[in-house]
Amino acid sequence: MSPLDAAASIRPARASDCSSLAALSIEVWLSTYIREGVNAFFADYVLAHYTADQFSKALKDPSEKLLVWQSSNGIAGYIRVSHNLPCPCEHPSKTEITTLYVQPRHHGKGIGQKLLNAGLSLCQELGWDTPWLATNSENEPALRFYAKHGFAIIGQTHFEIEDQRYCNEVLIPAR
Rank of each mutant, 00 (worst) to 15 (best):
E125P: 02
K94M: 05
P88H: 03
T99H: 04
Y101A: 10
W29T: 05
V46G: 04
S25T: 11
T95Y: 07
K60A: 14
A118V: 07
A118N: 07
D129T: 06
R144C: 08
A52N: 05
D61S: 15
T130N: 07
R80T: 01
A43E: 14
T130D: 03
G108W: 09
L85E: 04
D44M: 14
N84P: 05
K94I: 06
S121R: 11
K109H: 05
E96D: 02
Q124E: 11
T135I: 09
D17L: 08
N84S: 10
I75P: 00
L120C: 13
K109P: 01
N139W: 09
Q70W: 02
L126W: 08
E138W: 06
I34F: 00
A134E: 03
C87H: 04
V68N: 01
L59G: 07
K60Q: 15
N84D: 15
T98H: 02
S31L: 12
F42H: 11
T135H: 12
D61F: 13
P88D: 08
A40P: 01
S63E: 10
H106K: 09
L143G: 03
G110L: 05
D5L: 10
L120D: 07
I75Y: 00
P62R: 14
A76H: 14
A23K: 13
A76F: 04
Y78R: 12
G119V: 06
K60G: 10
R35T: 07
G74S: 08
H91S: 02
V81E: 01
A118P: 06
A15F: 02
P62C: 12
W128F: 00
E90Y: 06
R144G: 04
T130I: 10
A76R: 11
S9N: 13
A13G: 09
P131R: 04
A7M: 06
D5M: 04
A7R: 14
W128L: 02
A43D: 13
H49S: 10
G37N: 10
K114T: 00
H107S: 05
H106G: 03
I75W: 01
D61E: 11
Q54T: 11
Y33D: 03
A8R: 09
T95R: 10
I75G: 04
F55N: 01
V38C: 13
L66F: 03
L120V: 11
D53E: 12
I111R: 02
H107Y: 09
Q124H: 06
E125A: 14
P12R: 09
D17Q: 08
E125M: 07
L85V: 12
N139T: 09
